[in-house]
Design a protein around this nucleic acid. Structure first.
Lengths: 221, 221
DNA sequence: TTCGCTCTGTGATTTTTGTCACAGACACAT
DNA sequence: ATGTGTCTGTGACAAAAATCACAGAGCGAA
């Protein structure tokens, strides 16, 4: 059962809920609880069965593929207002997860039960549209990712990653490597190269972009 | 306007159509025509606008990403009874294609107009389910693909490809390279290696598997 | 302050894949 | 049979990334 503050935050992040008949909505909200997870928690894992449809209120979840050799590659990131198609996919196909979800910062979320999910999907166009849009967006992202992994060199992918992050980026090289799916040393070396070009300034757990234009040019090469 | 033979083949490949009210179905079938394409034709291309929702009756379509350097990588293959989520995605999101579709063999297909597609999706649960299932299947495939491209070596990916094809596989090394997204020479070399191990027998445009178990073992390594 | 931990830089080396350049094999048409 | 074009095999080499092995830097806790 969600308290009224949580409810209003949920509505704010997921305006499509307002399009549901209020009786339905009430019933739904009464049946769920707020879930809180610390940073670095595993939300779901490969081959695991799907428990419910997550709706993020705060924080973010990294959805990744892990290799047998201990490397990982980030498929996409779930932010507040978004949800997890992988979960939808599991619920719809009654299959298991094909990736792992890990909280990046502490997360507050609400999880719709599979039963509720199916109900909403069957009866409400607004909800369906929401889910369809999720699918199409992720699909686009994934295709982009496949093509980047298959055809682009790491230096370009790294540059692209940097220009898509807030500028004083506070993170470790290992975290970047885990996002790109490569070895940490490569990230260190490439960053050093960028620094030598004067494109970035490096510090411990910090990367500051000093020439975004050059980075952009390079990434689009 | 489809003739009765085509209609019955369509129903056979897409049984979910039978769940639509017959009036709706008639109207739909009257409004479409059979499209025939030769092998190697481009059905759609990146950044192109989407024309309609394809339903394959015969043949197959390769959906690929092409790199600037002229290499390509196959994302998935559309077979009769299936359709193209990429298209659904375009229609739903009003976006453009993010990949290229090329007929592999000659193709017969029926294309639903965007208007019809949206109508069916809005009104009929059977159609929705069909589309949702398409999405979930392709999503699974794509995740699998990303992970293979990112983490597996080509020899393993090649082995996997071989055991998933009919045994006397009649195709060129270049075609395999285009499916895996690598250079033709690599395929030739790796196949030679497999042949030296006694796992396959090679001929011009032919690969015969002689030790499927060994290949399988190797691919799962 | 000192110890210990994580993070970063870096050289040396190997593995994997790509690129280039051909030669020979095969298939088919004339 | 001869030529022509497409496939295939291969050697030499280059490039990209991985791996291994540390050293030193920075930071926080004891």
């Amino acid at each position: 059962m969600l308290n009224s503050d949580t409810r209003s935050r949920l509505m704010q992040q997921y305006p499509m809920l307002l399009k549901l008949p209020s009786a339905e909505l009430q019933e739904l909200l009464n049946g769920t609880t707020l879930i809180q997870l610390p940073a670095g928690a595993m939300v779901f894992d490969e081959n695991q069965q799907c428990q419910g449809f997550p709706m993020l209120l705060s924080g973010s979840i990294r959805v990744i593929k892990a290799s047998a050799q201990g490397r990982e590659l980030q498929l996409y990131r779930i932010l507040p207002g978004e949800s997890c198609i992988l979960t939808s996919s599991c619920l719809l196909g009654n299959s298991n997860y094909q990736a792992r979800g890990i909280t990046e910062q502490a997360v507050e979320m609400v999880a719709l039960s599979p039963k509720h999910f199916h109900q909403l999907l069957a009866h409400y166009a607004a909800f369906r549209e929401y889910v369809f849009n999720l699918f199409t967006e992720r699909l686009t992202d994934l295709m982009q990712l496949v093509s980047a992994v298959a055809f682009q060199k790491l230096d370009q992918r790294l540059a692209t990653l940097l220009i898509n992050k807030p500028s004083p980026l506070n993170t470790t090289h290992q975290a970047i490597a885990d996002e790109l799916g490569c070895a940490r040393e490569i990230v260190s070396r490439l960053l050093k190269g960028f620094a030598d070009q004067g494109w970035v300034k490096l510090g411990r757990e910090q990367i500051e972009i000093s020439d975004a234009a050059a980075l952009k040019r390079f990434s689009a090469l």
